[in-house]
């Protein structure tokens, strides 16, 4: 039973990350990029995807629009927007829609 639940959870997380990657690509207009091109754990800012401060605002809007998550604390925001993995984990715990 526990193994089945873990399997369901992992599958759910994989789907969430794929959806999230697609939303990031559309929201930030990352032309020519596909979900599989984005590494789950690669940093979104700096060396990874190379996003900038305006992109971070766009990602905040993405979280609010699609998952009902409002991040008020900038330090928390930096942690949450670290990678697709950290975003997905935060969404899984805090989503309201």
């Amino acid at each position: 039973m526990i193994i089945f639940a873990a399997h369901v959870f992992l599958s759910f997380m994989e789907d969430l990350k794929t959806t999230l990657k697609q939303q990031i690509i559309e929201s930030l207009n990352l032309q020519g990029m596909k979900p599989e091109d984005i590494d789950d754990n690669a940093p979104l800012f700096g060396d990874g995807l190379g996003l900038d401060s305006i992109d971070s605002l766009e990602l905040m809007v993405l979280l609010e629009r699609n998952y009902g998550i409002k991040i008020e604390d900038a330090r928390e925001g930096r942690k949450v927007l670290g990678s697709v993995q950290t975003m997905a984990e935060y969404i899984q715990q805090h989503r309201t829609v």
């Binding site: 305006i54 809007v61 609010e64 629009r65």
Partner: peptide, 10 residues
């Protein structure tokens, strides 16, 4: 559409 919330900055 968004009732003046969560607006795209760009």
């Amino acid at each position: 559409m968004m009732k003046e919330e969560a607006l795209n900055p760009t």
